[in-house]
Design a protein around this nucleic acid. Structure first.
Lengths: 230, 230
DNA sequence: CATATTGTGGTCATTACGACCAAAATAGTC
DNA sequence: GACTATTTTGGTCGTAATGACCACAATATG
């Protein structure tokens, strides 16, 4: 095994796929690059992991780097978003400047919060794009985004929690159904989806709250996620 | 964004969780470390990613590094095993020598092949361990192994393909059932499991072949995976 | 008022699956 | 050979989940 200090090293970065639902569409936050390479092209928000400084002088963990970049580029705090590591991308030629390994993260932002994103970021440099109307992306970010979308769809089909991060804190059954339909590109029967949803209520994961919500038709009952004592 | 050459860089490694089933137990391949740190302790096979040389002079991809380490430390070729990236581990203190980010991989080895592993590795340095009778592991490798086992169980419950890598190429229904029982730590009713399995035959994923196999009871029909034109 | 829209509540048929039973076909033992 | 243990194979029954479908309730809009 080679001694560690003999080894040439790649740079290590985090890139974040920030997703939300706006205007009934799944959208991703992109940043316009100011510098070469790929100056003027759109890219995922991200940056290099700090390897010096911090407690212990060794820099930050990968998750901490993702949280920091998210805060710096969107103004959002992590306890408000669903943030999870996706995959490491390390093709030797993925960055023309040299060898860079990027750890990709998925961040799912509630539509409650995305207006704050607009305010926190330089409006000229950051924009939301509908995921099927994308510009050409820098680096291998198109591949990373594709991976993130596949992951989100697979995740949603086996863990409803992520859907609640794409919906207001006080929600109707129809709100949640639209999230599923938008992400999966399918349609669900209203009544059948409702039956599935009500099982979550029986299991105590969701609770009805007082009040109704106007919907354009019959007003809907309002629910919210029950606070978990994890 | 900082210029890339200004940035201090971590070392980047791959660690591989090599799993197989031996003696009706799920087992993992560990290597006894010869050097400090953690000399004498057991660790996952792995090593640093090559960042120079190769085509283009930029070294190898992460997957290529995992394949290379797997070959070097087990003698197995990748087209014989199920190999997939798991997760990046990057806690600042995970390696006392300095900042090291490790990309963890899962390799699932057929019991057809694991005897070759014994021969290819230095017998004094490498050993199979049952996953619930483990020695103390170096670095954060216990955490990595735990992640791999969780991943394997989740994977198995939604994608039967990985199970076929833990079974001889010509298999009986009972062989496959034992794989599920060993990994999930549960038991299945023979007849019910059989019904589920036969659906895979209907879907054309598995085909019966001539012959029977002695089992200690009534002889079992033999099946094999149908070669896919992916 | 009529109509469109959306939520709510229900039936019916199909599918998947666990619990359970029983027969078939071998190996091993007396 | 007779008997038993073991494993595969084949089946029934009940339950849970789900998709297709229908009907009604309660709002907004004209």
């Amino acid at each position: 095994m080679p001694r560690i200090y003999d080894h040439p090293r790649p740079a290590i970065a985090v890139d974040i796929v920030v997703l939300t639902i706006r205007h009934e569409r799944l959208q991703v936050l992109l940043i316009e690059r100011a510098l070469e390479p790929f100056a003027g092209q759109w890219a995922l928000p991200g940056g290099f992991v700090k390897v010096e400084g911090g407690r212990g002088g060794r820099g930050e963990s990968l998750d901490a780097a993702a949280r920091r970049e998210l805060r710096e580029e969107t103004g959002l705090d992590v306890d408000e978003v669903w943030l999870e590591q996706l995959h490491a991308f390390g093709a030797p030629s993925r960055d023309p400047r040299g060898r860079v390994v990027s750890i990709a993260y998925l961040a799912v932002v509630s539509p409650d919060l995305f207006s704050r994103v607009q305010a926190a970021t330089d409006a000229a440099a950051a924009r939301w794009f509908t995921v099927d109307e994308l510009p050409r992306l820098a680096f291998d970010h198109a591949e990373i985004l594709g991976f993130a979308l596949d992951h989100l769809r697979a995740r949603l089909s086996q863990d409803p929690r992520v859907a609640f991060h794409l919906v207001p804190r006080e929600l109707t059954i129809g709100d949640l159904r639209r999230v599923y339909e938008i992400i999966e590109g399918t349609t669900y029967d209203k009544a059948n989806f409702r039956r599935r949803f009500l099982r979550l209520v029986d299991e105590g994961k969701i609770e009805p709250i007082d009040g109704q919500q106007s919907t354009g038709g019959r007003p809907a009952a309002v629910y919210r996620l029950v606070e978990r004592a994890d």
